[in-house]
Amino acid sequence: MSLTPADTPQPTAISVRRKIPLSLIVGGLIVGLHLLAGILTILWTPYEPTAMVGGRLAEPSIAHWAGTDRLGRDLFTQILIGARIALEVGSGAVLVGAGIGITLGTLAAFATRTLDDVFAAAFDILIAFPTLLVAMLIVTASQTASLFTAVLAIGIAGSAIIARLTRILVKRVLSMDYIVAARVAGSSWPSIVFVHVLPNIWPTLIVNLALQFGLAAMAESSLSYLGLGAPPPNASWGRLLQEAQGTVYTAPFGAIAPGLALVTLVIGMNLLADGLRAFADPTRRRSR
């Protein structure tokens, strides 16, 4: 008898050679590039971001890949830094949103009927407000525009969607017989949440968190565009877009470059989410 973990056979060749979805590869590459760019700026940038290093509103050239802005600063440098800010705010906001959303959603799923109904209604009402509007209200109410408030505001604004999804997912898992079996086996509710509930809702949740990440990056740019994001000299893409607005006909590249950066990041995140969805399907999971 050999039912110990040590001496079970290796998975068969067929189950190992699983096809990785193309969207996962492409999305991963795009997001990976942004990530690399963002990390790079911590160590090195092509030019000093705030230094006037070229002529004003110069066309893209070998020296300045994305041209220069009104003050003669290198745009490519600022776009690289923008990637870092987008990723910082995106991941921070998703962490905040997931922390609040998963906690509230799980609590709602475990609450009594009436309390659960109240939670569900609250989530629905919050979701009805556009995320950006809620984030703007929070930033305005806090009276400080900083990277930190942007993270908090976008995270809180997005948490209702995560909470609603979590509530539905947790309720579905709680209705399964393996939860009853776990109770009969003597498992406590906290251990049921960590051993059975979270692992089963995680695949669906992570896909939605990736989508939220893209939305958060977009919301960050929108806030910055409106002057409610990270203040200068933080080179957010939204602020670059806003600054390029006045000269969009004479120097379109100032708007095209940061716009392209934002759009590719959001598309990359969506592709990644899509690829994860295909990958996370439990019936396609490879055997170990």
Binding site: Y178, V180, A181
Partner: peptide, 18 residues
């Protein structure tokens, strides 16, 4: 202890048999 009716719903799909 107990055994349930539906052998599909009564085993956690994300847990190894062990």
């Amino acid at each position: 202890q107990a055994v349930f009716q539906d052998p599909y719903s009564s085993l956690d799909p994300r847990q190894a048999i062990f």
